[in-house]
Design a protein around this nucleic acid. Sequence first.
DNA 1: ACATTAAGTGATT
DNA 2: AATCACTTAATGT
Length: 217
Amino acid sequence: MNSQNSNLQDKLSEYYSSIFEKELIDDIIKVGRFESIESGNLLIDIGQDLTHIPLILSGVVKIMRQENEDEELALYYLERGDTCAISFVNCIDHKRSIFRGIVEKDVEVVFLPVEVIDDWLQKHKTWRRFIIDSYHLRLLEMVDAIDGLAFMKLKNRMLKYLIEKVKITQENILDITHQEIANDLNSSRVVVSRMLKQLEQENKIEMRRNKIIIESF
DNA sequence: ACATTAAGTGATT
DNA sequence: AATCACTTAATGT
């Protein structure tokens, strides 16, 4: 076994040994392709053929939809231990991706080919559990996102977005511009600036140029 | 000093 | 809540 494989084994055991049985981890090492991807790169794009599904070992991936050039919406984040089960079902049917996944914090990821993940559903009980749980979680997050759009005022939606961001970056000083927030929430920069100012007056956040400090979360 | 980019403001829909 | 038109502030060269 070469060094990259043993490295992969270490990481897999570290993060997944509590949910996956040993044989499954061995199988993953056998067929998985390990990759490191730097922040800012695309993991998957809309319309792209899905031949593999990603298993995230570290880092963060932002999953979003995009209608036109300048209309986008952030849906949810993938972190360590996550996979995109939506892409999994897509994968089995050999459909194209309906999402875009962009790397937000450098990721280490294992790509698993479609052919095997189907078999594993029967072969490994923990895999089956993992996929079902993951699909369920993603669905809940999606419903949450829809609720946000339908019922929540932008200010609340934005606060939720910021807190989420703090959680995944482990940093309460966010490196972000008003424009970027507006893009993620499919809103406009002017409105975001005004809402942020309100949040600042409520002492929930503090603003610097290119930075937002979240006080309470 | 100047140009560029981020953020703020008032009016209008 | 969005858009327009414009100002002001911060930053890079």
